[in-house]
């Protein structure tokens, strides 16, 4: 079953649909024309570029090029996680990279090599979109984990110090905040799994169905990707937080001010 193409005039028609919300926003006095215009333009250009490079990757299907692409995605995610979590990139770039690279590579390799089993494990059609989807979700989890952990620690500095004074080691003293941060990081994924299919149809499944796949096959892929997202988000959050502890504290177990980005 072929997916119907959207021709250029129809694409133009699609953009025309945006005029309706724009008009409504204008009528209620919200002057967002510039933001809407920039948003739509950026989305279109970015996705057009994605289309070009994905096409190139799929055509070449070179294991090194595919690997290089995953490496680039990991690096971008690494910087993005730290900026959004309010931590200084130069201190945490390595632990975050190790955490996300290990988790993404493990879950993607597990899914592709053991579960899907394509002719070539490096097949761009599988590893690039799957690693991208897992990484995207893992990124959100890591931002929440790091942000929650370090803001809780700063907010509860006196409590943390009290634990140290009562004889706790650094790990024992940070453990309550560590648990809360990991819980906050994986809760959206767990909640997403619990309501999947009831509240909305997941994007990947919808895409596959529109692409001509049988619903059952799309369901199986959706389950596979959700399990990998859950696994990698949990692993990456825990590894990332644990590795960051060695950098964020001085030798006397005091949180170093200089590792946190000034807000």
């Amino acid at each position: 079953m072929e997916t119907l193409d959207i021709k250029l005039p129809q694409m133009a028609l699609l953009y025309g649909l945006c005029l309706l919300p724009w008009l409504l926003l204008w009528l209620i006095g919200l002057r967002l024309s510039r933001d809407i215009g920039v948003g739509i333009l950026r989305m279109s250009i970015q996705l057009a570029l994605v289309g070009i490079y994905l096409k190139t990757l799929f055509d070449l299907n070179n294991p090194w090029l595919n690997g290089l692409w995953i490496l680039a995605m990991l690096l971008v995610a690494d910087f993005s996680i730290l900026r959004r979590a309010g931590l200084k990139v130069r201190y945490f770039v390595l632990p975050t990279f190790i955490a996300i690279a290990f988790s993404i590579l493990l879950s993607t390799a597990y899914l592709v090599i053991l579960v899907i089993q394509p002719a070539h494990f490096y097949d761009a059609r599988y590893i690039v979109p799957l690693a991208g989807m897992i990484l995207g979700n893992c990124l959100q989890g890591n931002v929440i984990a790091l942000e929650r952990f370090y803001s809780a620690l700063r907010k509860n500095e006196n409590e943390y110090t009290t634990f140290l004074m009562l004889g706790a080691t650094r790990w024992e003293a940070v453990r309550p905040y560590f648990r809360e941060a990991v819980k906050a990081a994986i809760n959206p994924t767990i909640a997403g799994m619990a309501t999947m299919g009831l509240v909305s149809l997941p994007g990947m499944m919808t895409g596959q169905i529109l692409g001509g796949s049988e619903p059952w096959l799309a369901v199986k892929y959706q389950i596979a990707i959700m399990i990998c997202i859950f696994t990698s988000a949990t692993l990456a959050s825990i590894i990332n937080l644990k590795l960051s502890l060695a950098i964020a504290f001085n030798a006397f177990d005091v949180l170093r001010d200089e590792v946190i980005e000034k807000s």
Binding site: E159, T162, F163, M165, G167, A168
Partner: peptide, 28 residues
């Protein structure tokens, strides 16, 4: 050493848990 501040932080929900808190740590 025991450090006790103006508004001590007990670090637990109930008083019993607060008194027993340090005994969860390996050293005690």
């Amino acid at each position: 050493a025991a450090y006790i501040g103006q508004e001590p932080i007990l670090g637990a929900d109930s008083v019993r848990e607060a008194l027993l808190l340090p005994f969860q740590f390996k050293i005690h």
